[in-house]
Nucleic acid binder design. Structure first.
Lengths: 223, 223
DNA sequence: TAGATTGTTAATCGATTAACAATC
DNA sequence: TAGATTGTTAATCGATTAACAATC
């Protein structure tokens, strides 16, 4: 899998291709052209072909792409062909939301446990998932092969926990804390900064109004 | 607030500037140069100056930027200077996680209620937050001014609920469902596709290994 | 004033789109 | 074969970086 020279922008789009191909499979579609896919996804056909060709010639002239083959190829590129073991730090609502979302497990992301500093949550099973105390973190990581740690804790605790995880050899952190982590370069961090996402929405809301002159089709009835 | 010609890339960065300026304020820093800020944020000073100048000359030659002023200016640009009313569709773990994250309210995002099709959750207060049944959605929106609807429901229900929201005049949807929404152009959609985020992490994990030859500082002790 | 740092223009770099020859 | 559609090169577009004159 040649990772050289693949731009960030392509990697952002790849999971979206994967999702649309999955939907096509569910619909029983066997082949698709870049043109048809471009209409569905609202991107240019040129971009689709360009993107896919960074990884190999998955298509066939005059035919298009085989949906299942392309789906599986992208899975391989994304590293979904082997299992990942995760732990979730923070067993609050967010941590439990991630733990209970079954589709991650289906894609090979296995959740080995949750950790929370609140002792009262320890041991409690939520859907067969075990919750450990934070003191058990290091011993746990010594006896379990864990790739990914999910950080679902307040920002004040984030960097301290990140340090502990790094010291135990964690290679990737999925960070939901509202702060940037300061970790060594070899540790992968994927941020989900929800407040930033909400602010982008807010920006669009504040600035679209000026542009679009309230071109609403329907209006709220004022009950 | 000139929204003309502001690129997507800048809007993505703006909330991050805002966050760092907030941190600086907490630290009691009063002024900062683009150079200092660039070191903290790991972006170029040139980009910071270029970005900010799209909205106005907030700095002063020889001095830099006043932290508080810049913070407040960016708040205005992002539309954080006026209140937003939100409802959350889906009172599962994810919906409740968003409802319970107090900082949204602090920034003026007021949550007026949660909705869930599971009648058993109705009426139950979680931190003073009321949960309504889905039948109450339309009557509620007729009597309350709501800007933003948060979609924290399975993808299978997402588009149907989105249609109902649009019919009631909702102007923006913060979409956590694992699918793209099909709504009119005047409705703003901000997606949080968590599975795509996890796949990007997976990609980096799968492809970094090849590059970096496991240059870990510390190794896991095999207990 | 001298030093610092901005605002802004120009140069570079990269990503997207268009076009078309190759080929199934 | 003729038609369709890819893979790929070339053209365009936009975003980032560098440089420096303006100015506090």
């Amino acid at each position: 899998m040649e990772s050289k020279g693949i731009s960030k922008a392509i990697i952002v789009r790849l999971p979206r291709y994967y999702r649309y191909l999955g939907e096509l499979m569910e619909e029983g579609v066997e082949r698709i052209s870049s043109g048809e896919l471009s209409e569905r996804m609202h991107v240019t056909a040129s971009q689709i072909r360009q993107d896919l060709n960074h990884f190999g010639g998955f298509g066939q002239q005059g035919y298009g792409y085989n949906v299942r083959t392309l789906y599986e190829e992208i899975a391989k590129i994304l590293g979904l062909d082997n299992e990942h073991h995760m732990i979730i730090i923070g067993a609050g609502n967010l941590g439990r939301a991630i733990a209970n979302y079954g589709n991650f497990e289906k894609r090979g992301f296995i959740i080995d446990g949750l950790f929370d500093r609140d002792q009262r949550l320890s041991g409690v099973d939520s859907r067969g998932m075990r919750v450990y105390s934070m003191e058990e973190l290091e011993p746990f990581l010594e006896t379990h092969m864990v790739d990914i740690a999910v950080l679902a804790i307040p920002k004040t605790a984030a960097n301290e926990v990140a340090r502990r995880l790094v010291r135990c050899g964690i290679s990737a952190i999925w960070n939901f804390a509202h702060t940037d982590l300061d970790v060594p370069d070899n540790v992968i961090v994927e941020n989900v900064h929800l407040s930033e996402s909400l602010m982008r929405l807010s920006y669009t809301l504040a600035n679209q109004k000026a542009d679009e002159h309230m071109a609403c089709g329907e209006k709220m009835s004022d009950g």
